[in-house]
Write a protein that binds this DNA or RNA. Structure first.
Length: 833
DNA sequence: CTTTCTGTTTTCCTGG
DNA sequence: CCAGGAAAACAGAAAG
């Protein structure tokens, strides 16, 4: 969520008002003026829809309401709604059985299966007071069949499903907002996977697997929802079918939910409704076969979702399962599902805005936009042209020129690949062929210091990739942000560096030891546990028991997290190919969230006490490091490093008088990213910290009696040489983008590169080898303006490990000594810690 | 105390 | 079987 300059979260309205600021920033980043409106609009899309819906509830356009708004009328309809879902069919839709038979349909509160879930606004939590039985009004839940087995086997109309006080007409968008904007972005059809199974089966929560509607390949689930057994899809379908026009805007869907489902009615506030609205929106995109013309500069009254009868029937006839990607933004301008084969080539890429944003990222951008209706975008300078195009295109849905490359609408996720694609194991995504992890890596690579905070990654995505920019609303962004987090955590390709002193978010970096191509996923703790051999487990028990004893005795009272961190480090190390798990697995005992196999906290930057010498065998230590003194674990895992070095203990201290850090960067930071206050605060903290650092000693061996602080991953790479950089992303980045330390800030660490005159050789000699599709310089240039990242150029390089008194030394020492006693490794010495 | 953000993990699904 | 996307569940920490 964007944050304002004060670091507080921005509400939707705030986001609305601030979107221009963001867009300005974005446009500056990408140097595309036309992107301003796009970014701005997309940022406020959902909120705007909601707001406009509220504002326009009383502003009814009878003409619109009474009309069916056929495709051919999109010109007029576009003035009212920028997202017009075109019901291209007649009434072949087989209506779900909405019989309000209380016996069959009424939701029963005691059937509510899901357990409560706190603090997750992505899944509506049923509140106790929201018991349906407590709702007195004859609401839709009485009409909702508890079991929707025959929902689509019945031809009975659902028209008895009532809307709320606000009728469909009353919810129609106001034409007041219908001013067409010439600067409209390319139409972004709403997510729609055509040819999908009926909603009843697609999202059904039927408890009887056998009742899954024909054609559904989706696994049935026995889980029921808090509001009953109807899925979101069913509810949305019912909402749509309940409307007179068989279509609803997203806001109307929301409204219908609120009005008719007590559960949602009581979650209708902005805070608690985010989750179900998000889900509804996502499913509405698909289940209502929403034909959206996302003319973001048109009045944003919401999209009209109409159930596409053709798609419905076709999906049945084809028995084709819906795409697994529920947020897949299909290019469904029209209901042309059956005429477009998955093997159809993608339409020509004419995503002008994106191309201009990232001109050299053609590979990425080609794919970013290949699912977009680029032709329409290319004609965006003329609303009439666009309308005409849309009209003509959509009018062809009934057998028209659907094979036109301009209308090559992919019915479902296309996995057809070229030879290169197959070779590269690339899969097409709405944004291109790069996976989330690729994009994250790219983002990290593009960061000036090759590290980003989570929110900065978010920002990078939304700034540099049109797909995510278009989905930047709170609800829409939740999904891909979740995926980003998921990927960060999942892939060993990424490492998290604790940013403890800065307050919140950690730094994410690319694992310098990430191997080319695919890197193994992080093993999961369960896997680790499950695969634990009995002997190993037995071996662990002893150490675990003793550790617990120590802990119980108070020795670990303040160091538990650190121990866990060390443990996490160990686990993490295992996950990087070293399966020597002779180390105890304390995970079930004490492993806080941030100390899983992925995360290593600052305190865990301490050498893992149980580290065995086996871990160091295969690493080329820098000449200054005695073999064995540097745990491989640390070298592998720079995420054990603490960015917030202690002033008096840092070994890689640098001169603290950096004009960039002290002044200009802060300024640019404030200018370039006013919304990333958390980052700014972090940056400020770090900067303050850096400034406070005294002039460093040159001797790395002054510390810790042989326990050397690990180099940063840059330094590691410097030692290894560019040819040893396994990660092509990093290699590319390092060659292309590594900047010498800012002038005036001599790097006083071991590898002093003061004023950039002592850059490692590999920087100059290495051959840049961009991996296909990763043309980063443009995005990098954008990223470099993201603010805090640029403002913190050296922290990562100043990562220090063992000398950070981040926990009570006495405790730590006791723990370490104990653990060392358990370890076969006697190489580590902490005497002087 | 609640909300939000962040981070981890699991599950499901699809395609290779 | 694995990778990847998506969603979800859960929890810790910070902020309001």
């Amino acid at each position: 969520m964007p944050v304002n300059s004060n670091g507080s979260n921005m509400s939707a309205v705030q986001l609305l008002s601030s979107s221009s600021t963001n867009s300005n920033s974005a446009s500056r980043l990408i140097n595309v003026t036309s992107a301003i409106s796009t970014t701005s609009n997309s940022c406020i899309k959902m909120e705007d829809i909601s707001i406009s819906q509220q504002q326009s509830t009383s502003a009814i356009n009878p003409s619109v309401l009474s009309s069916h708004t056929p495709i051919n009328n999109i010109n007029s309809a576009a003035s009212v709604n920028d997202q017009n879902c075109i019901n291209s069919s007649t009434n072949r839709f087989r209506l779900p059985n909405a019989s309000p038979n209380p016996e069959n349909n009424a939701m029963e509160s005691d059937d509510l299966g899901p357990v409560s879930r706190d603090r997750c606004n992505t899944w509506p939590l049923r509140r106790p007071q929201l018991d349906i039985n407590a709702q007195t009004s004859p609401l839709i839940h009485e009409q909702i069949p508890e079991e929707d087995n025959d929902l689509y086997d019945s031809t009975e109309s659902i028209s008895n499903g009532r809307l709320g006080a606000n009728s469909t007409a009353g919810l129609m968008g106001s034409p007041d907002n219908g001013a067409f904007s010439p600067g409209m972005s390319s139409p972004v059809p709403c997510g729609n996977t055509s040819g999908q199974v009926p909603p009843s089966s697609a999202g059904s929560d039927t408890s009887d697997p056998g009742t899954t509607a024909p054609g559904s390949n989706k696994k049935s689930t026995t889980r029921r929802n808090a509001w009953g057994n109807m899925s979101y899809a069913d509810l949305i379908t019912q909402a749509i079918m309940s409307s007179a026009e068989k279509r609803l805007t997203l806001s109307q869907v929301y409204e219908w939910m609120v009005q008719n489902v007590p559960y949602f009615r009581d979650k209708g506030d902005s805070n608690s409704s985010a989750g179900w609205k998000k889900t509804s929106a996502s499913e509405a995109d698909e289940e209502c076969k929403c034909e959206t013309l996302d003319m973001e500069s048109i009045a944003r009254n919401g999209s009209i979702c109409a159930y596409d009868d053709e798609l419905e029937s076709e999906s049945e006839s084809e028995s084709e399962s819906r795409s697994r990607c529920y947020t897949w933004p299909m290019q469904q301008l029209c209901s042309v599902s059956t005429t477009n084969k998955p093997t159809d080539p993608p339409p020509p890429v004419l995503h002008a805005s994106t191309d201009r944003q990232l001109p050299s990222s053609d590979h990425l951008l080609d794919n970013l936009s290949h699912r977009r209706t680029a032709t329409i975008a290319s004609t965006a300078t003329s609303p009439h042209l666009i309308h005409n195009d849309i009209s003509s295109l959509c009018s062809a849905s009934d057998g028209g020129n659907l094979s036109s490359p301009l209308l090559t609408i992919q019915k479902k996720r296309v996995r057809k690949r070229t030879t290169d694609q197959v070779a590269n194991q690339k899969k097409p995504n709405p944004w291109g062929e790069e996976s989330y992890s690729d994009l994250i890596a790219k983002a990290l690579e593009c960061a000036p210091e090759k590290r980003m905070k989570l929110n900065e990654i978010y920002l990078w995505f939304s700034t540099n990739i049109s797909y995510f920019r278009d989905k930047s609303s709170t609800e829409e962004a939740a999904g891909w942000k979740n995926s980003i987090r998921h990927n960060l955590s999942l892939h060993s390709r990424f490492m998290r560096i604790q940013n403890e002193g800065a307050g919140k978010s950690s730094w994410w970096v690319i694992n310098p030891d990430a191997k080319p191509g695919r890197n193994p996923r992080r093993q999961r703790s369960a896997t680790l546990e499950n695969t634990t051999k009995a002997a190993i487990e037995k071996k662990r028990r002893g150490a675990r028991k003793k550790a617990m004893e120590l802990r119980a005795a108070g020795t670990l009272h303040s160091a538990s997290s650190s121990v866990v961190g060390s443990q996490a480090s160990i686990i993490s190390h295992e996950l990087y190919g070293d399966n020597d798990d002779s180390l105890g697995n304390f995970e079930p005992l004490f492993r806080p969230r941030t100390q899983s196999n992925l995360s290593i906290t600052a305190s865990s930057s301490r050498v893992s006490p149980s580290m065995t010498t086996d871990h160091f065998d295969d690493f080329d230590f820098p000449p200054f490091v005695e073999a064995g003194a540097m745990p491989h674990d640390i070298l592998d895992r720079t995420n054990e490093m603490n960015l917030n070095t202690h002033p008096e203990s840092s070994v890689f201290q640098r001169a603290g008088h950096n004009p960039m850090l002290n002044g200009s960067v802060n300024q640019s930071q404030a200018q370039s990213q006013p919304s990333a206050a958390s980052s700014s605060s972090s940056a400020s903290s770090l900067l303050q910290h850096i400034k406070s650092e005294p002039t460093p000693p040159n001797s790395i061996k002054n510390e810790a009696n042989g326990v050397q602080p690990p180099p940063s991953y840059h330094e590691l790479n410097a030692v290894r040489g560019v040819s040893h950089l396994q990660n092509p992303l990093l290699r590319t980045h390092l060659i292309q983008n590594r900047l010498p330390p800012p002038a005036g800030l001599p790097y006083n660490g071991l590898y002093s590169t003061a004023t950039g005159t002592a850059l490692p050789n590999w920087i100059h000699t290495g051959g840049a080898q961009l991996i296909p599709g990763l043309h980063s310089q443009i995005s990098c240039s954008a990223q470099q303006t993201l603010g805090p990242t640029a403002a913190l150029p050296l922290d990562l390089e100043n990562l220090t490990l063992p000398d950070q008194p981040l926990m009570e030394l006495d405790n730590m020492e006791a723990v370490l000594r104990h653990e060392l006693s358990q370890s076969t490794s006697n190489q580590l010495s902490f005497d002087n810690i």
